[in-house]
Design a binder for these strands. Structure first.
Length: 738
DNA sequence: ATTAGGCGATTTTTT
DNA sequence: ATCGCCTAAT
């Protein structure tokens, strides 16, 4: 086959091993995507019908790109291929099969924000205080349990402290309500199919028979639920091919389980393992530094990455005065390097640990008139006005969706408060009807004020009207008329200020998106649109057609490559992040995260750190990241820039910077080993470090999350299990180290 | 007694 | 920019 000739020997082997289980361990830049694409094309070319192939990717974007490439290789017969993220593929399957697990086909999909709202409601109903038990923490605990396939009952049995007991209690009611609301959260999109296949072996057999060839990309980032699901599906034909790299596993915090890679060979003893170790992407300098860094991890499968590429430029490490300076430095280097290497702006990426860091970078780019695009950040579909309209649409599709109903029941204002809502919910509950039906009968609720009665009744009438009309109108007409009648466009217009006009435009943009969606496919439904939007990943929205610098988090950078890469904020507390610098496993994940970022670079990599960073409303002294030392000195060029900046004068008058002795001992060349005398306070920055346990007179024992400021204004943020996070001024707090 | 609007605190990573 | 709490207005 002609298209195989461009592959190396290992890659060809990976492509041609069509039958049986295969694990491909693919280092960064080793042509993994090409292998996957060619493998699919190969399967089709040897006669496998495209609809028997299921390919799971990490983003929908990756899926559609890969699909396009397969079409180019083998033509239109490949369009029946099933390709997408775990969540979108199984949401699609659930759309047809969910009745077997007690859901209606029009079920809603709740994102984390919706889930959190629901959890708060449950906690309120159960009389669990939001102050004592952080709803966000409860949510992530529940999600964690679900990812490990632990149900509410088992969670309750396993609970060892009051927090876990409460979480389990909330969990049980949360699941009950999701079912009642005909809604699923992200985790359910994986759990319900497992339930479906367990309860209905015939259905499982149908899908096993359907998907005879399964491919999974980014296998290192799959969780236990995904693993189980795939194991079920692949059990019959065992034609499963997973591609991953343990060194690029960066989603353990979300339940990704490294055992999935390690267990693969145990579950499939006949599996063939193929290693792709030749890197085609990066210069030798870049690869060497990344490799030296990642070798500091204990948990890893040994690999020998190599490249035939040239040595290239050394990696630059630039020390900047502060975060503004960091932005300016990066911008001026973008100018220099892009000219020197003859690159466009679309060849440049700036990566960082937290979304909050994009602000100062954006400022610098804007000031220099450099075009840029941000991946993620405050996403369009997360904006309040967009979520509000989406909630209206969801209620139309799924009247049982109480969470969405409650979101918009008093927006625009209809004269309803907590009390009126209580009465209304009680009425709906005793009448045993969904909320839109109850709203139509608001007149029957004696306890409501006239204003509340008419407000709710008109909302009920609105839903009723558009539910009827949905049969006769096109999707795009319907949504426009509906949104118009909701009245929020008028509110924004009347308000007239720039923010309101921006919101007005966002709603218009949402309507355009609906029109576009309905024009793009003949069978477009509102259900389908809502589902697609719920399952968008932030990469899916990224437009790489524009010639602009790309800004994104290190997490979003996975799978991409750019000739010129900047990683900003290589500082202790930021990368590695505060709370992740204590546990070895978490620290190793931070290291992998930087590894992912570094290995995105093809020709030139620049790492920056700031000495002072404006965080949490004040200046904070930052030490260079320990990872810089861990890269070894060989290919690294250390530089330091000084530039005037508004923070500078304040900085130079401040107390000497707290000393710090990084944990790593080798290659201390990036950090001058200074040890200023610093003993004035009983507790100084020397004693008080992130991760230490301290005792407070009132709050009890807690863990230090991080420390900011110096001398008199030395502050610590401490996590107390009972009372939560407290910001303490050391001068007064009188903490004791435990 | 209720509700609406103002004010202040907050910021890891995400399907 | 958004959320949650508090107080003024009804």
């Amino acid at each position: 086959m002609s298209f195989l000739e461009s592959l190396n020997e290992k890659q060809q082997e990976a492509v041609k091993s069509a039958q049986g289980p295969v694990m491909i361990v693919a280092g960064p830049g080793s042509g993994k995507t090409r292998v996957l694409t060619f493998r699919i094309a190969h399967l089709i070319s040897i006669g496998v019908p495209a609809y028997q192939i299921l390919a799971l990717t990490f983003t929908n974007r990756a899926a559609s790109e890969m699909k396009d490439r397969v079409v180019k290789l083998v033509g239109e017969k490949s369009t029946q291929l099933w390709m997408g993220t775990f969540h979108s593929v199984f949401a699609r399957i659930l759309r047809t099969e969910c009745e077997q697990v007690g859901f209606q086909k029009n079920f809603s999909i709740y994102d984390s924000q919706d889930s959190l709202g629901l959890i708060k409601g449950v906690m309120e109903a159960q009389g669990i205080s939001w102050q004592r038990f952080n709803p966000q923490a409860i949510r992530s605990r529940i999600s964690g349990a679900k990812n490990q396939l632990i149900g509410p009952d088992e969670a309750a049995r396993r609970a060892t402290d009051i927090f876990e007991e409460k979480a389990a209690q909330v969990y049980a009611e949360y699941q009950r309500r999701l079912k009642q609301f005909n809604a699923m959260d992200f985790d359910d999109l994986l759990l319900k199919p497992i339930e479906l296949y367990t309860l209905h072996p015939k259905t499982l057999a149908k899908y096993q028979d359907r998907f005879r060839f399964i491919l999974i990309d980014e296998y290192q980032d799959t969780n236990r639920a995904q693993y189980t699901l795939i194991k079920m599906l692949a059990d019959r034909y065992r034609n499963i091919c997973v591609v991953g790299d343990d060194a690029q596993s960066i989603y353990a915090f979300r339940g990704a389980d490294i055992r999935n890679i390690l267990d693969f060979e145990r579950d499939y003893p006949e599996a063939k393992t193929i290693r792709l170790e030749q890197n085609y992407r990066s210069t030798r300098s870049i690869l060497a530094a990344a490799d030296t860094l990642i070798k500091h991890n204990v948990d890893q499968i040994p690999k020998d990455l190599w490249t035939e590429n040239t040595e290239g430029d050394p990696i630059s490490v630039v020390a900047c005065d502060d975060d503004k300076d960091e932005g300016l430095t990066i911008v001026s280097r973008i100018f220099e390097e892009s000219r020197r290497l003859k690159l466009d702006m679309k060849d440049v990426a700036i990566m960082y640990r937290t979304n909050a860091q994009s602000r100062s970078l954006e400022d610098a780019l804007r000031r220099q008139n450099l075009p840029y695009a941000i991946v993620g950040g405050v996403e369009f579909y997360q904006r309040k006005e967009v979520k509000d309209v989406m909630a209206y649409l969801r209620v139309l599709v799924n009247p049982r969706d109480q969470e969405s109903f409650l979101r918009i029941v008093n927006y625009p204002v209809r004269g309803l408060g907590d009390v009126a809502l209580e009465h209304f919910l009680a009425f709906a509950g005793s009448a045993g009807v969904d909320l839109p039906s109850a709203a139509l009968r608001a007149g029957e609720i004696a306890l409501l004020t006239p204003k509340a009665k008419s407000g709710i009744a008109s909302l009920g009438a609105l839903f009723e009207k558009y539910r009827r009309m949905s049969a006769e109108m096109s999707l795009s007409e319907l949504s426009r008329a509906y949104v118009d009648e909701i009245g929020i466009l008028k509110i924004f217009k009347d308000e007239g200020n720039p923010e309101a006009m921006a919101r007005w435009e966002n709603v218009q943009e949402l309507l355009s998106a609906i029109s576009e969606f309905s024009a793009s496919r003949p069978d477009a439904t509102l259900e389908q649109f809502l589902q697609d939007v719920s399952l968008l990943s932030n990469m899916d929205e990224w437009d790489d057609k524009h010639n602009a610098v790309t800004l994104m988090t290190l997490h979003s950078a996975k799978g991409l490559e750019f000739p010129l890469v900047f990683v900003a904020g290589l500082e202790e507390g930021l990368l590695p992040f505060y709370s992740s610098s204590i546990e070895r496993k978490e620290l190793e994940e931070e290291r992998r995260l930087l590894y992912v970022g570094m290995t995105r670079a093809m020709r030139k990599l620049t790492l920056t750190h700031a000495r002072i960073r404006f965080r949490f409303g004040e200046m904070s002294y930052q030490s260079p990241s320990r990872f810089l030392e861990e890269m070894g000195g060989g290919a690294v060029l250390t530089e330091s820039v000084h530039r005037g900046s508004p923070y500078r004068s304040a900085a130079t008058t401040a107390a000497p910077r707290p000393s710090r002795k990084p944990a790593a001992t080798r290659g201390d060349r990036f950090v001058p080993d200074e040890q200023p005398d610093y003993d004035s306070e009983a507790l100084s920055a020397d004693d008080l470090k992130a991760g230490k346990f301290v005792e407070h007179e009132i709050f009890g024992k807690g863990k230090v999350v991080y420390v900011v400021g110096t001398g008199e204004s030395l502050k610590a943020v401490v996590d107390f299990p009972q009372v939560g996070r407290k910001n303490l001024l050391l001068k007064y707090a009188r903490l004791k180290i435990v």
